[in-house]
């Protein structure tokens, strides 16, 4: 049975440019796509790619723990979104609440794509002008990109689930940078707990939409 170093050795080709490109794409997808399934898949991919990048900076076991926490976060959000989506289907006649099943119209898609590109350009410019200390330039750029796209999602989101994904993207960006600065296992543990609690808080806020739309499920 292959060990973790064996697996990482096989995946080493992913730990440089492909992982950075992947993070750029997944973070942008969360901004551009309104559908919760695709957004959540992008968030999951983001956690895996960030974990792969982290293996270059910290112990692979710690990076793997962060990926596992990310997976747990995605499971919590998936169950929540499914429940809320079913609630919305049962309450089609109450359109007053922001929907998590929103379809992306062409103008909306174009606006979000342009916004993501502009903000991304600003992130690129910042990463070259003010490179982050202690991390390689490519990872510094990834941190800037994730943070900027996370902030953009927070600004554009009209419902808690999407805003939560933006917040989690922002926290991932911070962890990618901070993991190299502070390697204490207790800090890793605290950040993991905080990530999971943020996901639970988002889950607590989200089902309200579907339930409230029809009064009671």
């Amino acid at each position: 049975m292959p060990t973790l170093p064996d697996v990482l050795a096989k995946l080493s080709f992913l730990m440089t440019a492909p992982a950075i490109v992947g993070l750029v794409i997944t973070a942008s997808l969360i901004v551009v796509i309104r559908d919760w399934r695709l957004s959540l898949a992008a968030l999951l991919g983001q956690y895996v790619l960030a974990g792969l990048l982290l293996t270059r900076l910290i112990h692979p076991q710690v990076a793997l723990t962060k990926v596992l926490i990310g997976d747990l976060v995605c499971v919590v959000l998936y169950l929540t979104a499914r429940l809320a989506s079913e609630g919305e289907e049962a309450a089609e006649d109450s359109p007053r609440l922001p929907s998590i099943r929103g379809k992306t119209s062409l103008p909306d898609f174009a606006f979000r794509l342009l916004a993501a590109l502009f903000v991304g350009l600003a992130a690129y410019s910042l990463s070259t002008r003010y490179p982050l200390p202690e991390v390689p330039a490519d990872i510094g750029f990834a941190c800037y990109w994730l943070a900027s796209q996370g902030l953009l999602v927070l600004m554009l989101a009209d419902e808690p689930l999407k805003a939560g994904m933006g917040l989690l993207t922002l926290i991932t960006s911070f962890e990618l940078f901070y993991s190299t600065l502070e390697r204490s296992l207790s800090v890793v543990g605290f950040l993991g707990i905080a990530n999971f609690l943020v996901a639970l808080a988002i889950a607590y806020l989200t089902p309200s939409t579907g339930i409230d739309a029809k009064g009671e499920r």
């Binding site: 609440l97 922001p98 419902e159 808690p160 805003a163 917040l167 943020v198 808080a201 988002i202 806020l205 309200s208 939409t209 339930i211 409230d212």
Partner: peptide, 11 residues
């Protein structure tokens, strides 16, 4: 029930 902007904003 219902989305609360204050809660999310605080978080």
């Amino acid at each position: 029930r219902g989305p609360r902007r204050g809660t999310l904003r605080y978080l």
